[in-house]
Design a protein around this nucleic acid. Structure first.
Lengths: 117, 117
DNA sequence: CCTCTCGTACGATAAGCATCGTACTACGGA
DNA sequence: TCCGTAGTACGATGCTTATCGTACGAGAGG
């Protein structure tokens, strides 16, 4: 009632203060999840889960996005049958200043170095 | 022969270019390992494994230090019966500029916030 | 209403990992 | 030479995690 659509299925997110560094690092330590975060950051847009072409099945994709959500890295909202993802940049920058940017830069640098797009 | 002590037992380290971001993040995602890295960074000194008072047995300690070494976070050298650890700051800063510092700052901030020393 | 697409739930499986205990090696000092 | 301290090796154990397949639910569009 307070804000926005009442029709959306519920989706649990940690509050800003509940986000733990270890959880964030663990979430980012997986290559696929790191890729997702990189793409979310570079596009700075709302991307549906299905937008990402990951070499895994749908169920595994669901799993990875849940990890990202529960770690506090992304905010997810249902839009129709799709689920859109947004990076929680403000929360992360407030809690861990510079962390996200340096991880993204490191990932970009390494991708460059290794030539994997 | 080339450099230093020939009597030291061998200890495998990844070369700078072999250090992978995912490995670094994974190593840092463990609370105990993060603690060790924080202490190594703050003291900026060579600390033996036994210097750390971790709530785990010796074998588990060995395990964690191996993870740190193999991820490229610390350099380890035997000194007598002891093994001294040094943060590979130069290598990490060269590969992933700003990453280590922001992780350390984030860890300090979180420790502050949660009041766990 | 039917059907397509998107995503979930659940169970299974296999791999990884943190942890321990015990037995062992290596070095240094008495 | 003998002992103590630092760390390792190895095997076991139990937890977590990445992965899949199949069956299901929820919207959108005809």
């Amino acid at each position: 009632m307070t804000t926005a659509a009442p029709n959306a299925r519920a989706l649990v997110h940690p509050a800003r203060e509940e986000i733990r560094l270890e959880g964030v690092l663990h979430a980012l330590a997986d290559p696929l999840r790191l890729l997702v975060v990189r793409e979310l950051a570079s596009e700075d847009a709302e991307l549906t889960c299905s937008h990402f072409e990951l070499p895994i099945t749908k169920s595994t994709t669901t799993h990875h996005f849940r990890v990202l959500r529960e770690a506090g890295l992304v905010q997810q909202v249902y839009r129709g049958t799709a689920k859109v993802n947004v990076l929680r940049r403000a929360d992360l920058d407030a809690l861990f200043p510079g962390l996200l940017d340096s991880v993204l830069a490191a990932a970009a640098g390494q991708a460059d170095r290794l030539g994997d797009a």
